[in-house]
Simulated assay, not measured.
Amino acid sequence: MIIFAFFFLNCNVSYSQDIKINDVSKIFIHFEDGLNNNAIDKFSSYFAEKSFISLKNGNSGYYSANQSYYVIKDFLSIYKPISFKLTNIVTDSTNPFASGVLKFNNNGIKGTAIVFISLQLIRNQWKISQITIN
Rank of each mutant, 00 (worst) to 15 (best):
F8D: 03
N10K: 13
C11N: 15
V13I: 14
S14A: 14
S14T: 10
S14L: 10
S14D: 14
K26F: 11
F28E: 01
I29N: 12
I29K: 10
I29C: 02
G34F: 05
N37V: 03
A39R: 11
D41R: 11
K42A: 06
F43P: 00
S45V: 09
Y46L: 01
F47V: 02
K50L: 08
K50R: 14
K50D: 14
S51C: 04
S54I: 07
N57V: 03
N57W: 07
G61N: 02
Y63Q: 06
N66D: 15
Y69M: 00
Y69P: 04
Y70R: 09
V71Q: 06
V71S: 05
F75Y: 14
F75S: 04
L76H: 10
L76Q: 08
S77I: 02
K80D: 04
P81T: 04
I82A: 04
I82M: 13
K85R: 15
K85G: 01
T87E: 14
N88C: 08
I89P: 01
I89S: 03
V90P: 04
T91P: 00
T91C: 08
T94Y: 10
T94D: 14
N95I: 09
P96L: 07
P96E: 03
F97G: 08
S99Y: 05
K103F: 00
K103R: 13
F104V: 02
F104R: 04
N106M: 11
N106R: 13
N106I: 06
N107H: 08
I109E: 13
K110Y: 15
G111A: 08
T112D: 07
Q120N: 09
Q120K: 12
I122R: 10
R123P: 00
R123G: 08
W126E: 07
I131M: 01
I131P: 03
I133G: 01
N134H: 12
